[in-house]
């Protein structure tokens, strides 16, 4: 019982203590405590502030953001109940058979859409004499392939696309929402470390809306008749990185020792061969 009381007290303190007080507790001139995987977020008292806007009146979506996509299990993280993702039988079988040690991401390959990890990413707007021509999505820990291009100056996808990890993206504004339409994906990346697959028929639509100063919502639609029996609608939420921070250099292949402790060599993914 006493342990429970302590635990509850700790939880309350952890949630309510402001960052400044936390810094005092640990001290700046003492040995520092370090969070692992804990990317600092915007302070709670700033989250509900107004949405900052660009000179053209559009919401500033820059970020950097943390979250806003899938990671370990897209089905649950996207707001569905276990078993609700309408996977075709072959896709469910593939997902069940895949092992996390084989996921391409752990071998420093790209994450694909809509995957994120606990590290920051941002939208980088490219304004030229023709206006907003491209938006780049930059992931600090992408892993390989850190940037993804959204063509704001195109309204149609090319009809001769080579399948790629990030596909071909075109974007437009619907009011304050940035809509990104992407096709042309390869079949290599996994939606999550659980191994949720897709085919090259994949078509995604992201609808990004900054609902307040500290929160960005991704209403995400998947259309892949090769994998799902119907269109899938998911919802993810990103939080703003602490405003004094930005993306840092990250070179995944520098010293990747994944697998050594567990006695395996990291895989580069498994194909969807089971359906064929």
């Amino acid at each position: 019982m006493r342990r429970c009381v302590i635990a509850v007290t700790v939880i309350v303190l952890s949630v309510t203590l402001p960052a400044q007080l936390q810094a005092q507790l640990f001290g700046t001139d003492q040995v520092k405590s370090v969070a692992a995987g804990g990317t600092p977020l915007v302070a709670d008292n700033l989250v509900n502030g107004p949405v900052p806007r660009l000179p053209d009146g559009k919401p500033d979506l820059t970020g950097p953001w943390v979250g806003g996509g899938s990671n370990a299990d897209m089905e649950v993280e996207g707001g569905l109940k276990p078993g609700e993702l309408p996977l075709l039988p072959w896709a469910k079988e593939v997902r069940d058979k895949r092992k996390t040690g084989d996921e391409p991401y752990t071998a420093c390959l790209p994450m694909g859409v809509p995957r994120v990890n606990p590290y920051p990413w941002k939208f980088a707007m490219t304004y030229t004499s023709k206006g907003l021509t491209q938006i780049y999505l930059l992931h600090e820990t992408g892993d390989a392939g850190y940037h993804r291009v959204v063509h704001m100056d195109q309204t149609k996808h090319p009809d001769d696309l080579l399948p790629t990890w990030w596909g071909h993206s075109i974007g437009h504004w619907e009011g304050d929402t940035l809509v990104i339409d992407t096709v042309g994906y390869n079949e290599k990346f996994w939606f999550d470390s659980r191994g949720t697959p897709h085919t090259d028929k994949l078509h995604t639509i992201e609808r990004w809306t900054r609902i307040n100063y500290g929160t960005l919502v991704n209403d995400f639609t998947i259309d892949d008749p090769g994998t799902f029996s119907k269109t899938v609608h998911l919802k993810f939420t990103a939080k703003l990185l602490r405003p004094d921070l930005d993306l840092m250099e990250f070179i995944c292949l520098e010293n990747n020792q994944v697998g050594a402790a567990g006695g395996y060599v990291p895989g580069t993914g498994t194909s969807n061969e089971i359906k064929k």
Binding site: S14, Q22, G38
Partner: peptide, 10 residues
């Protein structure tokens, strides 16, 4: 304070 994953990459 730091209820976050240790191994974020895998």
């Amino acid at each position: 304070f730091f209820a976050v994953p240790l191994i974020a990459h895998h």
